[in-house]
Design a protein around this nucleic acid. Structure first.
Lengths: 330, 330
DNA sequence: CTGAAAGCGCTAACAC
DNA sequence: GTGTTAGCGCTTTCAG
């Protein structure tokens, strides 16, 4: 691996000049040309580790997400990757698996590696970010808020819940249930709250709290909750699933029970990206996952570049794709 | 950020001793205790950048994949992440989007950052890995082979193609088509070759090459190819999709055309992880994506730890989940 | 505009 | 077993 010293020797200049050429610091045109030629000749690539050590700042950002296998976070990652890459940053993928312990470990690594910043979708809403903050490493929260006052890119989760539940009401369903993620995840709670505000005023026969089920934000979570709901008497006639994976689980169980929409109303918050048999009768509240990633990455890079404005919160809009069929007449 | 010098001063030892404690080099019990106490007190974390510079080796591995949004690669990434994390390595995610240019850039970064190694699922089978090899950075190829003689973790793609086509033949279909990815991707070609070997002997009425369609390894690619196939006269009565996303696209088009399996035979190579309405009548050739990731990561870490055996190739088995229904009687 | 020189924080000889 | 010391490759004052 060639170093700036070898390039300097080959070009007949000092190492400092080589460094300047590679950092956009003004250098006379001739010397710059000499340096570039020598660098090309020697196949020189600046050693980023040395640069990071010296500058105390690596061109790397950490993306900390709870579930790399969820297409929602995958799209988000894709968005982050795209803008980071364009800005010359690499992204380190940190999959926490909703485990605060793993999350803490990754946050420590971000510090130890002098990473330029972190984009964080928190596992449990209790992460200790004081280490990063003390070292003034920019952080932007995405999807989920944190205990700290930080830049964040979120959705109007309550509104998404309202939208999902409303379309079901409008379609004529009467006993609308909700399956949501763990109560300590704010998105789970807020979306359920949106659902609650709608069903509260359209008086379901059964106590509506019985129709609210907490489970994991995964396919199995959706399956378990849906099965429990179906066993109720009276069973609901529709359900709001507050994330994509739970929606998949719920639809699977319903399909197994022969209660495919619109026989049973379904509204899902989040996209169902790889569905094969398109469930026309399902309402989808589309979430701009990729946009969240690109927005968060842009905000982060601004901070890295020295922006010191007060923390901003960006709320991105969802989009309702309503079902094409309503409830069957009773 | 505390440094080893501060810890050393606080503990009354030399910086070298502090370093030793943190690197498992024998140190007397008392001094070790002193060091640990001081380190905890100062909230010291070793600076990985400095360590990397000195050792010329970062505890980071690059995972270079063509499509982060494909659940197949996502599972693979998950597998890599799990074992890397357990072994103390971080993983940098490099999404090449099937673009050799981006791929080359990431490979350069792996060098510039002194990364410990790379796991590579190649974009086009032509990557220049000489830079990495010259610097003796271990590489393991995954999913797709490379031009170089490297450790690799692959599937028996031809056998997967054979299995997919055979179940369709056995189920009674007679005009079996195949939609596959770009010809320059070896997995696409090998799987199609498996299909070809089966249809060749069961004499389809139409020229079988007309029934072979190349397109992109994505949902749209599957859709386009499937539509083209359906427009043929005679149209096929079954299809092998050589990857998961193409399978999704094909099933979507078939569903829109009202030709849901088993009315039209479908065999997909790769899992359909988030299907809602379970397509019982579809044959799935399951691919061990996550295992490929864990296997590749383990092999890579062995190499990083100094293993110098000749290059190995591990072929992981697929699993056929046959459709529950055959072709409708003609 | 350019060069000399001092480190960034750590590890690894090398002495003792 | 422990301390001293010389860098890893780069950036960045500081002079000139």
């Amino acid at each position: 691996m060639a170093t700036i010293y070898e390039v300097a020797a080959a070009a007949g200049v000092s190492p400092a000049t080589v460094s300047r050429v590679f950092n956009g610091v003004p250098v006379s045109a001739e010397k710059a040309a000499l340096v570039r030629a020598a660098a090309a000749e020697l196949r020189f690539t600046p050693n980023r580790t040395a640069r990071s050590l010296r500058r105390k700042n690596a061109e790397v950002i950490a993306l900390v997400i709870p579930d790399i296998e969820n297409p929602y976070f995958t799209s988000l990652a894709r968005g982050v990757e795209d803008v980071a890459q364009a800005a010359g940053y690499s992204v380190v993928l940190c999959n926490t698996d909703e485990d605060p312990g793993k999350e803490a470990k990754y946050l420590d690594i971000a510090i130890a590696e002098n990473m330029a910043g972190v984009i964080l979708a928190e596992a449990d809403g209790r992460a200790d970010l004081s280490g990063l903050i003390a070292r003034s490493r920019p952080i932007v929260a995405v999807d989920r808020r944190t205990l700290f006052e930080l830049d964040s890119v979120v959705l109007d989760n309550r509104a998404a819940g309202v939208a999902a539940a409303s379309t079901l009401v409008d379609a004529g369903y009467r006993r609308i249930a909700c399956i949501t993620g763990p109560a300590e995840i704010d998105t789970a709670e807020e979306r359920a709250e949106g659902w609650r505000s709608i069903v509260a005023r359209s008086a379901t026969p059964h106590g509506s709290e019985d129709y609210l089920r907490y489970s994991s934000f995964r396919v199995d979570g959706g399956r378990d909750a849906m099965r429990a709901l179906l066993a109720l008497d009276p069973a609901p006639d529709a359900v709001v699933a507050t994330n994509n994976l739970m929606g998949v689980g719920a639809l699977q169980v319903l399909s197994e029970a022969g209660r495919v929409p619109p026989a049973f109303g379904v509204a899902v918050i989040g996209d169902l990206p790889f569905t094969t048999l398109t469930p026309d009768a399902t309402t989808i509240v589309r979430l701009p996952a990729r946009d969240m990633g690109t927005t968060a990455a842009r905000m982060l890079i601004e901070r890295i570049n020295g922006d010191t404005e007060p923390a901003r919160t960006v709320v991105l809009p969802h989009e309702v794709v309503a079902a094409t069929a309503g409830a069957p007449a009773v």
